[in-house]
Design a binder for these strands. Structure first.
Lengths: 334, 334
DNA sequence: TGTTAGCACTCTATCCTTTCGACTGCTAAA
DNA sequence: TTTAGCAGTCGAAAGGATAGAGTGCTAACA
């Protein structure tokens, strides 16, 4: 039904959003005529504007101001007018060349780049452990009655924790390692943590070890699940919106509440790109918008990277940057 | 020379700073009389105030406002009037009971607590590697031509990185482990990274391994040196100062520049507590103050924890919290 | 000499009014 | 359906008046 917009209405709407994104000032009929529709009179444009306003796309701050896009307008704009814009991919690629130790580092770096290139605040959320596969679990004997638990994952990350060895027999650790590998290798972190391990009665001796290891894994899961990092929170001071105290406060409050960001980024099942605009979802995103994308490394989901900024953000640029960065990361030869 | 202040002047100064810290409004002669010096006339207090102003302790926003403390006044206040105030230690201790995996976690948690208790933004900087001793370095054979490098430190932290094994002989890894232990155990990270290792000619085979290991250590050093974490940056919105846009901007800019924070926290040789107030040091801390303390775990320096907030912050409370937390952390039985 | 009451003076914050200009919506004509 | 013209609305900026808060100064007092 939104598509019932006539061609000219579409053009007017696009002009208005474009204009507003650039100037961050209410747009008048005259502005639109000047830059986008020189062959139509302002009176005509005015009647189109008034119609678009009735339909809920536009808002008049007051009668003698121009008009400002509503969240609905941004939504329409994103869905109909935003096409891929090629931003210098090279610039991006150049910045992600060095070797990384861990996934987190890659993505953290990416977050910084996204924030710098777009000039918005970027956020990054590590994928939760449903998608994290354990390659192996090993005990490393420290020969002092303790052992280190090593968790080896697809992406080479490991995690340590010292545990006590309950029994010292020559090949104890070796046997335990075999059992651990057999039980855990290839499973996801969630599977392991949520499962019950049944040991044969003759292997009761290893029960303690297994419990310790599972505890270590569970702590790791807890510390890793849905970590959120923020980059460039101070960018907000470069927007004209920040002249208004409430906007800053609002922004900082959202950005400071990582759990909030998590839910904002999370919910969209299989969709690769998520765009939340303004108060649409009753999520407290007034005057703000959040664009986020899922990231993969060699096909495996590793997290989400997003941008949060004013509702009138430059969606073209943001989407383009996120998309391209996504490709670059996925193709990293490690 | 600052001590040339008469007793009454001291009292007036303390009253004014106390009052300002509480109300964050210019303090008048009448305010001081009312709450602190009921037996002296306002005229007398006025003349004291005017004298203190001449000496650089006070500032008059304008002629018909009261007076406001200068950075010099805060400095005097901190050095002469702040005595330890006992804030409920128990509250603090309760929050730091659970077991921690790594130093970073302890101190991160502490940062959060400090921020919550003081209601200021807290920062934490991990000590640099000069103070980090390597307990052992081990290779863990993965039996696929690669090995994991494990760095074992005093505080049980380890770090992994896969490296290639250049040669597969039965006891190769074992021998390498012996050599690595001999070369690295007990040294600090800096010592290792900055040193040249000379291998006997007959051990040339291990040269590659050593180089790889040192590279891993060096990367670890880089990633760990002087990391800065911020907790509670949004606290600023609870101060009356944040009504002023420039204050917020200033604050966020400093808090966003981690390198800046690093230098601010760093320079004070052996001093345990560092207090920087306002523009004293030309560090761009206008209207702000930064209080920081060095932290130890079992006598070993692990980092610095600090609080950044408005110049008129509650120094008593902040210093008390930092001191007590310092004791608690150092005594953690692990 | 130090302290004090009294008073003139200064400056801000607030409120009101006026003016200017930016846009719009409406109407009547093309 | 489009357009020119115009009246009407509203906000932002500027100016003026007023009230209130505090100070500094002076002259008297202990």
């Amino acid at each position: 039904m939104d598509d019932k917009l006539t061609e000219r209405k579409k053009k007017v709407l696009q002009a208005l959003v474009d204009g507003y994104i650039t100037s961050v000032e209410p747009i008048s009929s005259g502005d639109i005529q000047e830059k986008y529709l020189p062959n139509v009179s302002t009176a005509t444009i005015r009647s189109e504007l008034s119609h678009l306003e009735e339909m809920g796309y536009l808002i008049k701050p007051h009668v003698s101001a121009g008009r400002v896009p509503s969240s609905k307008a941004y939504r329409y704009y994103v869905e109909n007018f935003v096409e891929d814009e090629l931003i210098d991919l090279e610039q991006l690629r150049k910045n992600i060349t060095k070797k990384y130790d861990s996934v987190v580092e890659i993505v953290k770096d990416s977050a910084k780049i996204v924030s710098d290139v777009t000039n918005y605040t970027s956020m990054l959320m590590i994928a939760n452990s449903d998608t994290l596969t354990i390659k192996d679990v090993k005990l490393l004997d420290m020969f002092d009655g303790t052992a280190l638990v090593l968790i080896i994952t697809d992406s080479g990350v490991i995690k340590d924790k010292e545990i006590k060895l309950p029994k010292i027999e020559d090949n104890y650790v070796e046997v335990a390692n075999g059992l651990l590998s057999k039980s855990f290798a290839g499973k996801t972190l969630s599977q392991i943590v949520n499962s019950q391990v049944d040991l044969d009665s003759e292997l009761k001796d290893f029960k303690q070890i297994f419990e310790n290891v599972i505890e270590v894994l569970s702590e790791y899961k807890k510390s890793r699940d849905g970590q959120v990092f923020i980059e460039g929170a101070d960018k907000i001071f470069e927007y004209p919106e920040s002249k208004n105290y409430n906007n800053i406060k609002n922004f900082m409050t959202i950005v400071g509440r990582k759990d909030k960001l998590k839910t904002l980024m999370k919910d969209d099942g299989d969709i690769e790109f998520s765009i939340k605009i303004g108060a649409e979802d009753g999520e407290g995103l007034d005057n703000m918008a959040l664009v986020s994308a899922k990231y993969h490394i060699k096909g495996k989901e590793v997290g989400q990277l997003g941008v949060i900024g004013p509702e009138r953000m430059d969606y073209k640029k943001v989407l383009s940057v996120l998309k391209q960065l996504g490709k670059i990361i996925d193709n990293l030869d490690d």
